[in-house]
Amino acid sequence: MTNPNTTTTVLATDSDSDGHRPQVAGATVAFRTLRRAFGATVALDGLDLTVHPGELLALLGPSGCGKTTALRMLAGFEYPDSGQVLVDGRDVTAVPAHRRDTGMVFQSYSLFPHLNALDNVAFGLRMRKVRTALRRTRAAELLDLVGLPDHGSRYPHQLSGGQQQRIALARALALRPRVLLLDEPLSALDAKVRLTLREEIRRLQQELGITTLFVTHDQEEALSMADRVAVMRGGRLEQCATPADLYARPATAFVAEFVGTMSRIPGRIVDSGTVEVLGRRLPLDGGAPAAAAGEVDVLVRPEAVRLGHDPAGQARVVATAFLGAVTRVTVTLSDGTSVKADLPTESAAGLPPGSPVAVTLPDRPVLVAPRAA
């Protein structure tokens, strides 16, 4: 679908004699102790975060955690009460939006309804007074890059939602920004289109080597697309790590429960490094809070839970959900605690609802959290 020479051609600028511009590496972006409050609401509370050149970093968190505020500060649409925004070491905190080398794609497509797709893509180039022939050539190449080479004459109302968002992406790339900002660009699309477009965005980002910040509340999007994921809560950074590290080694109970599925099983800390749960003692994860002996909840992923049919078992199967190669089995412990386990579908077939089962955990460190009320 993509012309292998497209990347070079797209980098053309009107000021070069040969119509081409050498490729420029993605920028380093840094947020330094950013703070922003809206009245009594603190949107950012001392955010410190660095995005590496050419990296796709996802800002993930619940509504109101500050992720969109951080993105808008990088774009120049918001200004901090204190702190700095740096691009390649240059302080751009007070630089107006139109003078920052960024491109932004919004949740809403924000296309001009009176312009066709080609002219929408070329709009920023026209504002930069790029020659007509060159801007139309570059816009056509960008349409090819996003997989819509034959849609240049169509107007927004003639395009599907996914096609409109591809046009918006091409428009953001037209000025060849060093930083691309994506503010929940897939949330308005249906599931199948969302899956296809997130793969396309990732392919384009890697092909162009552009530093990208992607804001989302969808953990699946963040984990499948990003080089690293920054999980935010209440205006603060909880953890920034690769998707694999974030899932396997969450730094806090909030991250553990926000990223992926997690069951809480009652336990009791017996010393500084051990917790008793389901009748056995397990080592505490290094990220677990230091605590004296007392009741806690042990946080466990579904794939770590082991089930076995046992007439004298301490749990009973209450539901199963087919997920393809695995089946998610929900059991209830004798104290009413609900626990989820992911089993090979073939194994789960022998555990229909109502089956008595024994629940065990592997002998490896576990994360704990304060006992839920």
Results as ranks from 00 to 15, higher is better:
Ala248Leu: 14
Leu223Lys: 05
Arg264Asn: 10
Asp218Gln: 03
Tyr79Glu: 13
Gly46Lys: 08
Pro185Ala: 05
Thr211Pro: 12
Ala358Asn: 04
Ala288Trp: 00
Ala349Trp: 13
Gly234Phe: 00
Ala290Leu: 10
Pro302His: 12
Asp101Phe: 05
Leu47Gln: 08
Thr211Asp: 11
Gln205His: 12
Phe214Gln: 05
Val130Tyr: 03
Leu333Val: 10
Gly324Val: 14
Thr212Trp: 09
Gly66Val: 01
Val193Ile: 15
Ala191Trp: 02
Glu257Tyr: 01
Glu346Thr: 14
Val339Ser: 09
Ala293Cys: 12
Val105Thr: 06
Tyr247Cys: 06
Leu143Phe: 05
His98Phe: 03
Thr68Gln: 11
Leu159Ser: 08
Val215Lys: 12
Gln84Asp: 14
Arg236Val: 01
Arg32Glu: 15
Pro80Ser: 10
Thr216Tyr: 11
Thr41Val: 14
Val277Leu: 05
Val317Glu: 11
Gly66Pro: 11
Leu59Arg: 10
Glu207Cys: 00
Val255Arg: 10
Ala174Tyr: 04
Arg280Tyr: 01
Leu57Gly: 08
Ala172Met: 06
His217Cys: 09
His309Asn: 08
Phe123Met: 07
Ala40Leu: 06
Cys65Ala: 13
Ala27Glu: 11
Arg128Phe: 02
Phe77Gly: 01
Thr6Met: 04
Gly89Thr: 02
Ala312Leu: 13
Ser263Phe: 10
Pro250Cys: 06
Pro22Ile: 00
Thr274Met: 01
Asp342Ser: 15
Ala290Gln: 13
Ser338Glu: 15
Ala321His: 14
Pro370Cys: 01
His309Phe: 11
